[in-house]
Amino acid sequence: VCQVIAMYDYAANNEDELSFSKGQLINVMNKDDPDWWQGEINGVTGLFPSNYVKM
């Protein structure tokens, strides 16, 4: 598990995705897919595009 910072706002398009705002910290749970990582914010988990965040 690592933390990343959102570089942009992201609004989920599907129920399994994670919405976040620019500057939010996201706990990364899974990086099996290079493009879509699984993350957690405040107890909510979902997929998000890895190119929207930085380490």
Rank of each mutant, 00 (worst) to 15 (best):
V44P: 03
D16M: 09
Q24A: 13
V1N: 03
S50N: 07
E15Y: 13
S19G: 10
I26F: 08
F48A: 02
T45M: 05
Y52R: 12
V44K: 09
I41A: 14
G23E: 07
V53S: 05
P34Y: 05
D35I: 15
D16G: 12
Q3K: 14
W36I: 05
L47V: 14
L18A: 02
F20E: 00
E40L: 05
F48V: 12
N14A: 11
G23V: 01
A12Q: 10
N30W: 05
Q38T: 11
F48N: 00
S21I: 10
P49D: 02
M29E: 13
Y52W: 05
W37V: 01
L47I: 04
Q24P: 02
I5L: 06
F20G: 00
I5T: 14
E15W: 05
M29C: 12
V28G: 00
D33M: 06
L25P: 06
G46K: 07
I26C: 01
M29G: 09
D33W: 04
K31L: 15
Q3H: 04
K31C: 15
T45E: 10
W36N: 12
I5G: 03
D35R: 12
A12C: 07
W37Q: 02
N51G: 12
W36F: 15
S50Y: 06
G46S: 02
Y52S: 09
V4N: 02
V1L: 04
W36L: 12
I5E: 09
V53P: 01
V28T: 04
D35E: 14
Y10A: 02
Q24N: 10
Y52P: 02
L18S: 01
D9L: 02
D33E: 13
A11Y: 07
A6K: 00
L18R: 00
V44G: 14
K31W: 06
Y8H: 05
Y52G: 06
I26S: 00
G46R: 03
K22W: 03
L18W: 01
V4A: 12
Q24M: 10
V28A: 03
V1G: 05
Q3R: 06
I41Q: 08
W37L: 03
N27I: 13
N51P: 11
G39K: 00
L18D: 00
K54M: 05
K31V: 15
N30V: 10
K22N: 12
G43K: 15
S50H: 04
G39S: 00
K22I: 09
V1I: 15
G43L: 04
K22Q: 15
E40Y: 04
C2A: 07
Y52M: 13
I26Y: 02
M7Y: 11
I5C: 08
M7G: 08
Q3W: 08
V28H: 01
N42F: 06
A11N: 12
V28C: 08
G43M: 08
N27W: 06
N13V: 13
I5D: 05
F20T: 01
M55W: 03
K22H: 05
F48I: 08
N27G: 06
I41E: 03
L25C: 08
D16A: 14
E15D: 09
Y10C: 10
V1K: 15
V44D: 06
P49W: 03
P34K: 15
N51L: 05
Y10I: 02
N27M: 12
D9I: 02
G43F: 04
L18E: 01
D32M: 10
Y10M: 03
A11R: 13
Y8S: 14
A12D: 02
F20C: 02
D33K: 06
I41W: 05
F20P: 01
P49E: 03
N42T: 13
D33R: 13
V4K: 02
D9A: 14
M29F: 10
L25S: 13
V28I: 14
E17Q: 11
K54H: 09
M29Y: 04
F48R: 00
Q38A: 13
M29L: 13
S21Y: 06
E17D: 05
N27V: 07
P49F: 03
P49C: 09
T45C: 08
L18G: 01
S19W: 03
L25M: 15
A12F: 02
S50W: 03
W36P: 00
P49R: 14
E17F: 07
N14G: 12
N14L: 11
T45L: 12
L47W: 09
M29D: 08
N30H: 13
F48Y: 01
D35F: 08
K54T: 14
Y52A: 09
Y10Q: 02
D9K: 04
T45F: 10
N27A: 11
D35A: 11
A6Q: 00
D35L: 12
G23N: 14
D32R: 10
D9Q: 06
I26R: 00
I41L: 13
C2G: 07
K22G: 07
A6Y: 00
Y10V: 03
N30D: 08
N30C: 14
A6G: 05
E15S: 13
C2M: 06
G46N: 02
N30F: 07
V28Q: 00
Y52C: 11
P49N: 07
W36E: 07
S19I: 02
D32A: 11
K22V: 08
K22Y: 04
W36G: 02
K54D: 10
A6W: 00
S21H: 15
K22C: 09
N51Y: 09
K22L: 05
D32V: 09
L25R: 08
Q38I: 15
E15K: 10
Y10S: 03
D16C: 13
V1W: 03
T45H: 06
L47R: 13
S19C: 09
E15N: 06
V53Y: 02
Q24R: 06
N14F: 08
Y52K: 15
D32I: 09
K54I: 06
D9T: 08
E40H: 08
V1C: 03
N14I: 07
Y8C: 13
W36A: 07
K54Q: 10
M7F: 05
A11M: 10
K31P: 15
I26T: 01
S50G: 07
S19T: 11
I26E: 01
N13S: 14
M29Q: 06
N42D: 05
C2D: 11
C2Y: 14
I5K: 04
I41P: 00
V4E: 03
I41N: 05
G43H: 12
N14P: 02
V44C: 12
V44E: 07
K31Q: 11
V28W: 00
N13K: 15
V28S: 00
E17L: 06
K22F: 05
N30M: 12
M7A: 08
I5S: 06
D32L: 07
E40I: 07
N14H: 14
C2F: 14
M29K: 08
C2S: 13
N14D: 07
K54A: 06
D16E: 13
A11F: 10
N51V: 09
Q24T: 12
K22T: 09
S19N: 10
M7K: 06
I5P: 02
Q38C: 12
N13A: 12
A11T: 11
N30Y: 06
A11L: 09
S21V: 12
N42L: 09
D32G: 07
I41F: 15
D16Y: 15
Y52I: 12
G39N: 01
D9W: 03
L47K: 15
M7N: 08
V4T: 08
N27R: 11
D16R: 14
N42V: 07
M7I: 14
Y52Q: 14
V28M: 05
K54W: 03
V53K: 01
Q38P: 02
V4W: 08
K31S: 14
N13F: 07
G23R: 04
G23Q: 04
N42A: 13
P34A: 14
F20D: 00
Y8N: 14
E17K: 08
N13I: 09
C2H: 04
I5A: 06
Y52E: 04
P34L: 08
S50P: 13
N27P: 03
Q38K: 14
S50F: 05
I26K: 00
